[in-house]
Amino acid sequence: MRHWWKLLGAVLVVGASITALRVPLAPALVHSSADRLAPGEQAFRITGYNTHFDQRVRPYVWLATDDAKFCATTVQVEGTGSLSATFDIPNGLGGQLAHLVVFSPTDGVLPLYDAVWTGDGGTPLPDRNCDVTPLAMKPFDFSFPNRSLLYETIRNLNFHVPMWFTMMLLQLVAVVYSVRTLRSNSLRDDDAALQAVNVSLLFAALGLITGSIWARATWGAWWTNDTKLNGAAVTTLIYLAYLVLRGSVPEPSKRARLAAIYNIFAFVLMLVFVMVLPRLTDSLHPGNGGNPAFSQYDLDDQLRLVFYPAVLGWMLVGTWAFTLKLRLSRLEHALDENDR
């Protein structure tokens, strides 16, 4: 079984992709009808996503600050993803942001952070406790985290990020072969570098497409002027320029050397650009300028359980594609030799 890793790659990619698309999102609150507190009776309509409000036991709803818990007087369930909670708000509140919390027996504690503003200046929210009877633990469900802004697009993590990792792996392979080309002057090494670049460009294209769709969904634009995105664009441009350089030198051994030199030079500068520069500047992209990277997201082991296999699988499949391209190109060269 010399080819076990190809099989493994294929199985991981197919398995991770299907899982990434099929696993449901965890239940969460997505909207509340009001975001300000007014004195007197006030009703909030709360919308949930993938929630189960209409179960046997009615959910509890409260407003929470750091030191107080203020419960709703009545809760009326309107459907699986919708309920209405009425609060009896005292006069003279102010100066606080409060979270809206729903406790539903099936879904657990669902917070909507900083959902309501109590208005300027005044007394803090008083404590009005309600007895939340501890209910049976909710059964373990395999689900992805449900974050505001991201929502269902969080699945894209399992496609978008592996593309870039695979691209970087292939570029590393290309640069290793370029160094070997300079030492050995062998056209075989040069050909290997070229094929690695070819496959890496495919993954760059996939990374750009998945990223662009994700950016449209979460940031509202297909492209933003952002260091990480500029890094992606520069990477793609560098390897396109590499292909242009190869195209403009007819003599094979000279082409091999020039291409190798450009590849090494550009790779190092690109690495600096992608790895160091974003840390000096702000960015919308996770992992920069105070934005949490996906790994810091409140530790979602369930997401990781799909993400790491996806990364490994795509890397194996990318390597497989590279070996296939290399074999094909060597066969073509051999055929050319025979013709002559």
Binding site: L237, A241, L245, S248, V249, L258, M270, F273
Partner: peptide
């Protein structure tokens, strides 16, 4: 130097140089 070795002029140099000079 690479562009000169490749035997072409400003055009190739701009293509090769632009992404590298961006950082």
């Amino acid at each position: 130097a690479i562009a000169a070795r490749a035997g072409s002029g400003l055009g190739l140099m701009a293509i090769l140089g632009f992404p590298v000079v961006l950082p």
